[in-house]
Amino acid sequence: MTETRSGEQNDPHPQPAGEADEHPLSVLLFSWMRSDLFDRMFLAGLGALCAVLAALELVIHRHDGGGIDSLPVFQGVFGFLAFALAVLSGWPLGRLMRRPENYYRDQPDKDPDNTVEEEKEDGHDG
């Protein structure tokens, strides 16, 4: 996790970044996520969870439709592959279909939230 600071903030009174301005609830709920221990152990823990869930199939009898879904750990493997397919297809599809922000020339160059009054009077379709 890199800590970058930029001056572009909507907050009119920017406060220094870091833990100092953190909401107490955030410290309580989420600060552990930034620890090194969590960083190291998360993947391992998740792997262990998956292994346990796979192993549980030996204990719990699963209803199935009689097709390929009767294969062991079918939903787990399917979920893994489906997720990977969806994410990985983002690379070629993104290259194919991603265009610059103002592709449709509908955004003003300035502030994205500027109001109509500043636009040209006949600048709408209709």
Binding site: F42, L43, L46, G47, L49, C50, L53, A54, L56, E57, I60, R62, V73, F74, Q75, G76, V77, F78, G79, F80, L81, A82, F83, A84, V87
Partner: peptide
């Protein structure tokens, strides 16, 4: 079980 399998393995894929 099957629902947890689906979700856990998918999260594993993400990580």
């Amino acid at each position: 079980l099957v629902q947890m399998q689906l979700l856990a393995f998918a999260v594993l894929a993400f990580v």
